[in-house]
Design a binder for these strands. Structure first.
Lengths: 373, 373
DNA sequence: TCAATTTGTCCAATGAGTGAACAAATTACA
DNA sequence: TGTAATTTGTTCACTCATTGGACAAATTGA
């Protein structure tokens, strides 16, 4: 028999509690009366929900403030940033980066542990978790991995950087170490997309694609505010083809975007040795380099246009190392895009995040799973 | 101030009511006791919800049946197929096709009204609505349109077949004629995708893309069981490029899939005059035709692979006129796909629907909006 | 100083869901 | 045939989240 989720009074309370918490979180400081006005919950309900949030240590009162022309001052409420902590991890080829954040998403502590040759990756992760979580109220942990994860079982199906043992046992070993904490394993590209939505200063955009240009080319897809994984393989943007007569890629496809637009390929084609050198030549308007970049930017524009023609997101954010190349590079992409696109004036921007977007996205993911987006 | 939706007891009831109705609908006949077991609602609640559904005329009792080894027979429940009606419309270049269905989705009545030169399309639609709805309890109407619709206002932003007046006033005029009925205006490709999910015999698949190959090439995107419109332009699959060195398309892009895979282009390239002729030549293993089809099928495979690398749906359903070409055609596409894909054994099938998928999808959309999916 | 306003708590009432008790219907078996 | 066991579905008293009204406290303005 199928299991179905019935609704009960607990659902109402949880949902309203999340809403109230979300409001306090978003508004920095707010009074019970204003929460009542915004939510149209009754004063009684607001008071009782706030009371419970204070009991749990998530919310604190912070003085009185005049909020209207006349009448009694209001007691202001704010998040207690130390009321609970989330841990977000970015697992890369030879290191594990772990950030610990409070409820205000400020990074309280951050460590980067190298992974030595032959060392089991999971052990390094456990070490990082041990160091950051000691004695703290941990509400959730998210691990960002380059690879395919089965969303149902949390198991890593395939990854370019994990060996089989690491992939198989990861979730269980982590869960064993932190049995009372929710642990999420997510593809890193999706976390970047979430980070862009939540911290990228794009206001209230819920459908976006983040394009990551680095050693490889990937994409994170955000739909209705949530990371979209498809069957686990969503976001393999680097292996979208823009030329079915192009050369063969290691993935088996022909004319993949990654063959044009990964950083190594870009350096190769422009005959430069580093991003700094390339950036300087772009800024110096080096004719040869600008001409070499044409094909690259055109390929990227075709890739983005293919995304737009399929899922028409509100925003495309280009991140990874690409922003280091400067606005000229972006403008070239935009120009090609406008030439070929059915939908004009699409919002295509560089990421303006200065933090590690995987680790911070990971923290935010755990937060959203705990408190609702 | 932002408006936010609070939860109340009414939400619980509505949600549970939908669940119970959905169960009865899905199981054809079922007893209160079985509903209790499946939902884990209390017997009291099940009885009271069923009572209300019967009052509204959506559900009827239909005799007793032994459902277990021993004990009292159970009173069986089923949907009252005449308890309410939905109207779904497929608006094409020169005609309006309207289907009226009861709660069992059987087509009770269907009409196709031609649109004469110079006639206002909305008038024809109103005429169809008038004829089919008279004296019936209408629960919802969905109009399927080839074009871009603003999901917030229900207004048609652009369409290849509607003139400006028709596009602007459509929703308001329809609403005026049927003020008490919910009216939805949706892009036709999305409705096809929904129809495939609900009636295409693909069990429990919630992420799929339907590819429509006809005069044009389009796609409907279904994500988590719901039609995904993006900003309104999602599904312009025909203008995905597979060759950035290809010839220019009327849309401004180069190497669009539509230049290879629309039915007119297919007939053109294979030098045949009709789909029947082409089908016969394929079945006769005409070497020339099979060779001409290679490029077409390869282009389609590249397009599908691009979809898969971006959103990795569980299933790709190819519909429109393409299934008339037979399994050989599909196998050629699959073969090319396997050669180039990162993700193997993707489910790519022909549509097996024999009904008008836009009109039926439209009915289902209105149903889902009323009773929840 | 008093009226008006605003904040936030207390209290009785509403309504959705629950579990226990129970009557009715049916099978199994002595 | 009669009785025990099982199953179905209803009635009733109870729980819990939310609500609206009453009310006290705090504050402004006249």
């Amino acid at each position: 028999m199928t299991e179905i989720n019935k609704s009960s009074q607990q659902n109402i309370k949880e949902s309203n509690m999340r809403m109230v918490f979300g409001l306090i979180h978003k508004n920095e400081i707010i009074s019970r009366a204003d929460i009542k006005k915004i939510t149209s919950l009754s004063a009684t309900t607001v008071s009782s929900l706030v009371e419970e949030l204070m009991q749990e240590g998530f919310v604190v009162e912070c003085g009185m403030k005049q909020t209207s022309k006349s009448g009694r001052k209001a007691v202001m409420l704010r998040i207690n940033s130390d009321g609970g902590f989330f841990l977000g991890m970015d697992v890369i080829k030879n290191a594990v980066i772990a950030n610990l954040c409070g409820l205000d998403f400020e990074v309280k502590e951050s460590i980067k542990l190298p992974i030595e040759e032959g060392q089991a990756m999971v052990m390094v992760m456990l070490h990082a978790i041990g160091r950051l979580t000691r004695g703290r109220k941990i509400l959730g942990i998210t691990i960002g991995i380059p690879g395919v994860i089965d969303p149902k079982t949390n198991s890593v199906i395939s990854s370019t950087i994990l060996d089989e043992d690491d992939a198989n046992d990861m979730y269980l070993l982590l869960k064993q170490a932190m049995p009372n904490v929710n642990i999420y394993i997510k593809n890193n590209s999706g976390l970047v997309a979430l980070c862009e939505k939540e911290f990228g200063c794009h206001n209230e955009i819920n459908n976006l694609v983040s394009v990551d240009i680095d050693d490889g080319v990937g994409a994170g897809v955000l739909i209705d505010g949530a990371i979209y994984d498809g069957n686990g393989f969503a976001g393999e943007f680097g292996h979208m083809s823009v030329d079915f007569n192009g050369s063969r890629c290691s993935c088996g496809n022909y004319g993949c975007l990654e063959l044009y637009a990964s950083i190594p390929r870009i350096l190769d084609r422009t005959k430069t040795n580093s991003l700094e050198e390339l950036r300087n030549k772009i800024d110096d308007k080096d004719k040869k380099v600008l001409s070499d970049l044409q094909l690259i930017c055109r390929a990227i524009a075709f890739g983005i246009n293919n995304i737009v023609n399929l899922i028409d997101p509100e925003l495309i954010v280009i991140g990874g190392s690409a922003p280091l190349l400067g606005e000229t590079f972006l403008d070239m992409i935009r120009e090609y895009f406008e030439q070929i696109s059915l939908i004009k004036n699409k919002n295509i921007v560089f990421s303006n995040l200065t933090v590690n977007p995987v680790a911070l996205g990971a923290v935010r993911y755990a937060f959203n799973m705990t408190f609702g987006q």
